[in-house]
């Protein structure tokens, strides 16, 4: 303090102004504090709840639901697959999804996000071999060209032709099965989704292994 004052008095006028200027700018520098929190962000990466909805094509009141939940998103709590899928043999179902981020209130519909960016997304499936009459086989996670009944296609596909998305698919349950598996995998394939992209192209948004039962 003492030193600075000597400094101040010993100068000719213009230097005096200069120093006041310097110190003034220091005051300006220091007064830029604020107390704001970051803005709230709409976080489309976070999915906390996915429900598979199987609707009987012949009877819209016959609905089978199975869900998976990760209540704290990126927190330490593990993903939990809550329900087994139990279908009826010979019945044809339309499979749709309810995909939500419930960390926010009200919950945010991530399904809409995916629909908006359908040219970057595809859902792949794998299941116990022969569990369904239609499609046959074990699904397209291991081999992308294996049959799946996609009922939708993307809107602005990069290679010109619409490619399947998988938000709507149809399934005809096969013969009785207990403790089989049914895995759904949503892949995010920015700039990579083509007619030949596979279940390992891009990055998974979710990958959920359900237990599949088929009853008489």
């Amino acid at each position: 303090m003492f030193a600075k004052i000597i400094l101040l008095r010993n100068m000719k006028n213009f230097k005096n102004y200069l120093l006041i200027g310097l110190i003034g700018s220091a005051v300006v520098f220091t007064s830029c504090g604020d107390d704001d929190a970051p803005d709230a962000e709409n976080d489309p990466e976070v999915i906390t709840d996915v429900t598979l909805v199987f609707t009987n094509t012949a009877d819209a009141t016959d609905v089978v639901r199975a869900s998976a939940e990760d209540p704290d998103g990126l927190g330490t709590e593990e993903l939990e697959v809550k329900d087994e899928i139990t279908l009826t043999s010979g019945v044809t179902y339309t499979l749709t999804f309810e995909i939500f981020n419930n960390l926010e209130t009200p919950g945010e519909d991530i399904g809409d996000e995916i629909k908006d960016e359908d040219h970057e997304h595809q859902i792949f499936f794998s299941f116990s071999d022969g569990a369904f009459e239609d499609p046959r086989g074990d699904g397209n996670i291991d081999n992308a060209s294996d049959p799946i009944n996609y009922e939708d296609e993307d809107s602005d596909a990069q290679d010109g032709s619409g490619n399947p998305v998988g938000l709507v698919t149809t399934w005809t349950a096969g013969s009785v099965l207990t403790g089989g598996n049914f895995t759904v995998r949503l892949m995010h394939q920015p700039d990579e989704k083509t007619a030949t992209s596979t279940a390992t192209t891009g990055e998974p948004d979710f990958n959920l292994p359900f237990v599949l039962n088929i009853q008489q």
Binding site: T30, G33, D34, A37, P38, E41, N42, D43, E45
Partner: peptide
């Protein structure tokens, strides 16, 4: 005297990895 003021700019579509802060 040393001061820092860190601000997140909005629009990342992801929860801020580190907070806004001021250090003096």
């Amino acid at each position: 005297y040393f001061a820092q003021n860190n601000d997140n700019n909005p629009g990342t579509n992801t929860t801020a990895l580190i907070p806004n802060y001021n250090t003096h």
